[in-house]
Simulated scan of single mutants.
Amino acid sequence: MEIHVYDTYVKAGDGHIMHFDVFTAEKDDQKAILHAKKWLASIGEAKAEVSSKECQFCHSQQAPDDVLDSIKQQGYFIYQLEGCPGHTRAR
């Protein structure tokens, strides 16, 4: 299954930048923004600004099964990158 990736940068409440990708089954900019807001609220960052300026379509790609399972269950998958609570640096 092909998924769509939205590259997202938002400023957290403490001022640091969080970089993450929103993976969706539909190429729909507004839904990607809503998914980003929902995830941000779930980690205590509900006040972070997310618009088409911060969350932009990047590319489409094939997805592994765990990502597809998440998309089927909740409509999206968040791939955490720099500055996110679940991101760890490679050694």
Rank of each mutant, 00 (worst) to 15 (best):
Q80D: 08
A48P: 07
D69I: 09
F57E: 05
G75E: 04
A32I: 07
V67A: 03
R91A: 11
Q74D: 09
C84N: 01
M18R: 00
G15M: 08
C58P: 04
R89G: 13
I43C: 02
M18P: 00
Y76D: 03
A36W: 01
I43M: 01
L40D: 02
K72N: 14
K72Q: 12
H35G: 09
P64W: 07
Q56E: 13
D14T: 10
M1I: 11
A48D: 05
G83D: 03
A63P: 02
A63K: 03
H35T: 13
Q80N: 11
L81M: 08
L34C: 12
G13E: 10
V10G: 00
E45T: 03
S52F: 09
H19W: 07
H35Y: 11
L34Y: 06
L40H: 05
S60W: 12
E2H: 07
K38L: 10
A12M: 10
F77N: 01
E54K: 09
V5A: 11
K72M: 12
I78G: 00
E82A: 06
A90H: 12
F77M: 01
Q56M: 12
L34I: 09
G86V: 00
K53Y: 12
S70R: 05
K38N: 09
Q56P: 01
W39Y: 06
Q80T: 10
E49P: 09
S60C: 15
K47N: 12
A12Y: 04
P64A: 11
I43F: 02
L68R: 02
